[in-house]
């Protein structure tokens, strides 16, 4: 979160200040990627990049505080995920994988990142995302939006089209389920 500087940073970014945009991007991108890796493990990087393209296009028109900004960023990302899913269902042949993989082959020794290869330096983060991804989708998404996006219950409710009560219940169930999963790991080690 950017905090009290947010309004100034946003205004500067809207006027073309690259350092300000850098701050917005570096603040939002890691959370966005982790969210996407949980809800759409295939192509999270691509969807994040598309999300920023959309956000940059609309940036000058955006009005709001940091909560609104985060809500917009994650709503945009979620739309991209939904669009991608629809596209894949309509035309299975044009999956993201079928797009020319530009220069990947030109970079010897580099592996293609995929869901199973979320090679974060931080093993704890990776494991945490793995365990969250095992929750039922709504619970996982609600937890990611609450914790990673930093959105409150009302904002998540608006984003997902559900009541705040439903969001709260999903989050609580998710955390309890999480506790069970961790306890199971304890037993089976």
């Amino acid at each position: 979160m950017i905090g009290e500087d947010f309004a100034a940073v946003l205004t500067a970014a809207q006027q073309g200040d690259e350092a300000a945009f850098a701050r917005l991007w570096h603040d939002g991108q890691p959370a966005l990627l982790r969210y996407l890796h949980v809800i759409a493990p295939d192509g999270a990087e691509d969807i994040a990049a598309e999300t920023w393209t959309h956000v940059v296009r609309g940036l000058a028109r955006f009005r709001g505080n940091e909560q609104n900004w985060r809500a917009w960023l994650f709503t945009t990302a979620r739309r991209r995920v939904i669009d991608q899913t629809r596209q894949l269902m309509r035309r299975p042949a044009t999956s993201l994988e079928a797009l020319p993989d530009l220069t990947l082959a030109d970079l010897p020794g580099l592996r293609s990142p995929d869901a199973a290869d979320l090679a974060l330096e931080n093993l704890a983060t990776r494991a945490a995302m793995e365990v969250i991804a095992r929750l039922p989708p709504l619970q996982a998404e609600v937890i990611m939006l609450r914790v990673m996006a930093g959105l409150d219950t009302e904002a998540v409710g608006l984003l997902l089209g559900r009541s705040p009560g439903a969001i709260r219940i999903a989050a609580h169930r998710g955390l309890h389920r999480l506790a069970s999963l961790l306890a199971e790991a304890e037993v089976t080690r």
Partner: peptide
């Protein structure tokens, strides 16, 4: 942007 995954790698 499409090559973002390359950059990620």
């Amino acid at each position: 942007l499409l090559s973002a995954r390359v950059a990620a790698a």
